[in-house]
């Protein structure tokens, strides 16, 4: 149990998907102009990462490893992820059209999010049990969402500051992200898993 918790803390904070592994940067820069959109995107991505990691684990174990098709990993994982996104869209639409209408924009953007493919590939390299793999994926995604929301908060305040024109927009956002990455470095060593 303790190992699992340590593993999850490691995945969420120590090896944070965005600030340490550099995955999901496109949406990190694009969707974090408001806290609520960042939170919505974070939740949607967490869901997709969890579900697609479940599917990817099964594909890796029962298809790729069983038949020695390891080299097809990239292609199959991308297909699984795209299907997971489609599946999520369909399900949300069925569950509640009003929910779909609010959240519909986030879903297509998740498909090419490096974080989804990245987390899946990380899973494939560590041979964990199903539940451990899914928890790892969930924890990584939770770390991603956390950083998105924190960064959105920072950017909301940044929008009110007077930034030199040359730095306005992406450059100052990168520099602030660098400072946030420095802060998160404080977590290193907490979990060595």
């Amino acid at each position: 149990m303790k190992e699992t918790v340590m593993m999850m803390i490691g995945a969420a904070l120590v090896n944070n998907v965005i600030l340490a592994r550099f995955l999901g940067l496109c949406s990190f820069m694009g969707v974090t102009t408001r806290i609520d959109t960042a939170a919505g995107m974070g939740l949607a991505t967490t869901f997709v990462i969890t579900v697609s990691s479940m599917a990817d684990w099964a594909v890796q174990r029962y298809l790729l490893e069983a038949y020695g098709l390891g080299f097809l990993r990239t292609v199959t994982f991308i297909l699984v992820i795209a299907s997971a996104v489609q599946f999520t869209e369909m399900v949300i639409r069925k569950v509640s059209p009003s929910l779909f209408q609010m959240l519909g924009i986030y879903l297509p953007l998740i498909t090419t999010n490096c974080a989804v493919l990245g987390v899946a590939l990380l899973l494939a390299e560590n041979h964990m049990s199903f539940i451990a793999a899914t928890l790892f994926a969930f924890a990584s995604a939770a770390g991603y969402s956390l950083v998105m929301v924190i960064f959105a908060g920072l950017r909301e305040r940044l929008a009110l500051a007077s930034v030199p024109r040359l730095f306005a927009g992406p450059p100052i956002a990168f520099i602030v992200a660098g400072l946030l990455a420095m802060a998160f470095m404080g977590f290193s060593g907490i979990s060595t898993v």
Binding site: A39, G40, L43, T46, F47, T50, S98, T134, L135
Partner: peptide
């Protein structure tokens, strides 16, 4: 928006886990 996202995504994940 937050409630919608939680309902659509957090609830199923909670149940699954």
């Amino acid at each position: 928006l937050l409630k919608a996202a939680l309902t659509a995504f957090a609830l199923p994940m909670l149940a699954a886990f």
